[in-house]
Simulated assay, not measured.
Amino acid sequence: MAPSLLVVTVTYNSSSAIGSFLSSLATAVSSPFSTIIVDNASADVEATRAIVSATDARLIALDENGGYGAGITAGIDAFGPSPDYILVVNPDVHFAEHSIDTLLEIAEQYPDAGSVGPRILDPDDTVYPSARNLPSLRTGIGHAVFSRAWPNNPWTRRYRRSDSTGDTLRDAGWLSGACLLVRSEAYNEIGGFDPSFFMYFEDVDLGARLGRAGWRNLYAPQASVVHTGAHSTSQNAGAMERVHHESAYRFLSRKYTGWYLAPLRLAIRFALAVRVWWRSR
């Protein structure tokens, strides 16, 4: 019997993308599945509702925007019985035919895989580095300081993984939440997404906690999707830049705990604040 699957996406003023998302989803998986769309208090929720009403998907309209991870949690909680797998995905993703079938097949082949992520392509068909190492202090600082002026610097290469564009199934520290198949057993064991991450780094944190619990994060380039762009976040780029760096600090400060590391945490906060100022000036 085919494993049960719940697809959950979170929309925020995404009515222009949701129709294409649902159309490609129908060709990506051949076995029965359920779809829940959680709207994070969008201005265009009625337009989204009209599109969704013509499909088998279910729309949950929230009164407040609690962030991406909280929206995913609301969708999972509303579903009720735990499925075998949960596909966490952005609404501006376009699926290749049978791509989800491939992810499910790989997850079934590797029962120790807590998450499985596909190859993610940008609209110009370049491969987005969606399977990365967990950020450390050294790679994080090097990537933050040099990634724009010197894109091929060694710290960015180490963080993004030089083999991110390869064709081989491999382990990763974390996988992009733009499209991520999660085993419900593993997801429930670690408590799901941490709602304190409003946006960004919720997928890094999830991958880190899955790894600490003994689960693998598998990058599966045999399946591919196209991520058409940061649709909702681009609507307020300045604010999202600040949120991104706040989430980065939250993740790193939790990694480097202890009273004796207080000066280090202060230095990280200062460096990230300077980077926000520099990028948004």
Rank of each mutant, 00 (worst) to 15 (best):
M1C: 10
L5R: 07
L6I: 08
V8W: 02
G19I: 12
S20C: 07
F21P: 04
F21Y: 15
S23D: 15
A26T: 14
T27G: 10
A28P: 04
V29W: 03
I37E: 02
V38L: 12
S42H: 07
S42W: 08
V45A: 14
V52H: 04
L59P: 05
I60M: 13
L62H: 04
Y68Q: 12
Y68C: 10
G71W: 02
I72R: 10
G80S: 10
G80E: 11
P81V: 11
V89E: 02
N90E: 15
H98A: 11
I100K: 06
I100R: 01
D101I: 01
T102Q: 13
T102M: 12
L103Q: 03
D112P: 00
S115F: 00
D125C: 05
V127A: 03
P129N: 09
R132F: 05
P135H: 06
T139Y: 05
S147Q: 13
A149S: 14
P154R: 11
W155R: 06
T156G: 02
R158V: 10
R158P: 00
R161Y: 03
S164W: 06
S164Q: 03
T168M: 04
D171L: 12
A172M: 04
A172Q: 03
G173Y: 00
G173M: 01
W174P: 00
L175F: 03
S176F: 08
G177F: 02
C179Y: 00
A186W: 01
D194Y: 07
S196H: 08
M199E: 14
M199R: 12
F201N: 06
D203L: 01
G207Q: 03
A208P: 00
R212V: 09
G214A: 06
Q222C: 09
A223D: 07
V226G: 00
G229C: 09
R242P: 02
S247W: 07
F251L: 12
S253D: 09
W259Q: 07
L261S: 11
L261D: 04
R265F: 03
L266R: 14
A267T: 10
A271T: 13
V274Q: 13
V274S: 08
R275T: 06
V276R: 12
W277T: 10
W277I: 10
W278Q: 15
S280Y: 02
